[in-house]
Nucleic acid binder design. Sequence first.
DNA 1: CGTGTTTGACCTGCGC
DNA 2: GCGCAGGTCAAACACG
Length: 380
Amino acid sequence: MIKEETVSCYQPFDGVMGESDKEEELDATKAKVEKVREENEKLKLLLSTILNNYNSLQMHVSEVLRQQQGASIELEVDRDQSEDNDFGVDISLRLGRSSEQTISRKEEKVVKASDEKEERSKKKRSSLGLGFQIQNCEDSTSKLDYLCRQVKNVNAENKCVSSRKDVKSATNENHQEEHEQTSLKKTRVCVKATCEDPSINDGCQWRKYGQKTAKTNPLPRAYYRCSMSSNCPVRKQVQRCGEEDTSAFMTTYEGNHDHPLPMEATHMAAGTSAAASLLQSGSSSSSTTSASLSYYFPYHHFSISTTNAHPTVTLDLTRPNYTNQSPISSSSFSLNFSSSEPPPPSSQDHTLNFGGLRTQAPLNTDSLMARYRMRLSGQQ
DNA sequence: CGTGTTTGACCTGCGC
DNA sequence: GCGCAGGTCAAACACG
């Protein structure tokens, strides 16, 4: 971190300096200080990003080590059970097992309905199995390479995703059209959280631009736009999950930020970017990326759904995922809290931070935290 | 006065 | 083509 270089701004006082000269020098000094301060802020931001990447890498390495110890992991990728789904499909993935997986009756119906869909479905299933086998065999070095590739994917995706008008104008070529449209489809990441306050503090600034009562749900849905940058395309929708449980909210994120994020938001952004990458990168790489989601959200259920309009990853913060946990060391457990912030003192700080996503107190997450702590103490 | 919220109107995609 | 529903716009309003 740069020290503010006030020392270099001092000039020897010669006793003959006029008032205007002093003012000029003062202004120059102020300008210098301001400049250094800005640079300092930039460096802080950069450091935050690096720290976050480091934590992600650490998670990956510990996960790979765990896999090498022969731990059996069951990663359950459920078809989203939200009302947006046309049909619920359960795809179960098991490490080190056959890629032949059970398919629900509903999916079987769909598969029978179309040979093309069957073909696609088969490809998808086999590629999922392959992806996990590769994951299982990878060593730490290749894992790092994989991470780098993923970062590139996300960068490419950021270039790809633009406004709806751009999407319209980009639909000319026939052969590439389908692929382009697939990649340009807006990927959504849903976060279900239990919280009294619907305005989940996820580290970003949001501006509400609309509210609508959906036909299927009498409770209004609020529409927010990221206000951290004037052109940021990211939007989110917040809707209560049910009339009975008014503390449960479904927050849907859409798009990628075009600006640096604060520390609190970087982890979730990385996870959602990975999710977006998963759903936009096609079948061959999606499985590997879906596995990576369990790195970003190792302690919660997440599900993946693909409707025609919006591929969606749903992260359920109301359902902690115990089956997916690694043998926790004190360092690996830190991923439950952002690296720059130590776990809050339970009695004073009412903010919980699940991998960068914060929910404001009063929360029903107290019991969740207690369970996490129990697990931690049990495994130490 | 600047910024955020509310809310009715409008746009757009989709199913029939 | 029409109607419906979800999503967005933008003027009016509230608030600090």
